[in-house]
Design a binder for these strands. Structure first.
Lengths: 166, 166
DNA sequence: GAACAAAATTTGCCATTGCATCGTTTTCAC
DNA sequence: GTGAAAACGATGCAATGGCAAATTTTGTTC
């Protein structure tokens, strides 16, 4: 069968992703944070308080991993985690003030990396590229999900009405 | 700082990558293969025999991981690994006949997944998108490398002259 | 309203993997 | 030619992460 692995979508996607992730991780190491930790905090910053399973779905990280990660960050005083009053099953995770400060401090790093990656593109090219990434992700949306990719990311807690469109 | 995490390049890239990787892994599980195992075999199929470090660089997987992976696949009779005659440091990894058969069998799976992902795009859009992915990867090429991303992927063993342009 | 099923999270256990170290072989400088 | 440095790969150890079982709460059915 004629198939060029190094020209395949999964390969090119993975390569770019790993490279960026690596770079990001290096920068985050100074703060004793892992990539998933950053991602969780970034989601909370943008979307407001979240349930565990929603956090997991948003950042495509296994829910048990997120659970432990939250435990760690709570111990460090960056996140809060509390059972809901009206629904004792679920948990409401949010940034503390310290967490909010820290994630704010990290934003420029993210912006840096983004700028390096997209440096050679025009704004419209970047927009198209990102749209394509969303589209590709969407093209797999209907398929059977592994444990890592949780079911419908609905029902955000979202106390202060933040805009949910991705 | 104004920054929309869920619209950032790393986020969108990672999400798509994880999703595809997950799907692929599920399919590979039937064959008792992990994603890195598949990637290694796919590289060998396309590029011919490789050194360990080149394999590692091609698939952006830590070299120690590749070392163990090769051990496993060799034990299963899918790969061969032998010291070079003229350079005792390096090792030459190749597919066995069984390995060649297996990877050939897996190609349609890869093609499937690629087709699902790109189904809603025209050929020229796909081509542009892939070019962009390569470009983005290239934009980070000069940066300090983590252990995972090995130094220059040069000096392929490449016995039967295969084309190396990515 | 009791029993049962489903949802949400946590945790125990095990496999995977990353980092640092080590052993070997080759290359380089003098 | 000798010694130092670099290249290459393998491995010990610790940490990370995944899966599945356990726990708690909510929802449903009869």
């Amino acid at each position: 069968m004629q198939y060029r692995f190094t020209n395949s979508l999964p390969y090119l996607l993975n390569r770019a992703d790993v490279r960026i992730g690596d770079l990001f991780s290096q920068r985050l190491a100074e703060y004793d944070l892992t990539l998933p930790m950053y991602q969780a905090m970034a989601v909370l910053r943008q979307e407001g308080p979240q349930r565990l399973s929603d956090l997991s779905a948003m950042i495509t990280v296994e829910i048990s991993t997120v659970s432990r990660l939250v435990t760690t960050l709570k111990r460090r005083g960056l996140l809060s985690r509390e059972r809901l009053e009206d629904n004792g099953r679920t948990v409401r995770i949010d940034l503390t003030e310290a967490g909010r400060q820290l994630i704010e401090e990290l934003m420029p790093i993210a912006a840096d990396i983004e700028a390096i990656g997209t440096g050679t593109f025009s704004d419209s090219e970047i927009a198209w590229f990102k749209k394509a990434l969303r589209q590709i992700y969407g093209n797999f949306a209907h398929m059977e999900k592994s444990p890592r990719v949780q079911s419908g990311v609905g029902d955000f807690i979202n106390v202060q009405g933040s805009n949910n469109q991705l």
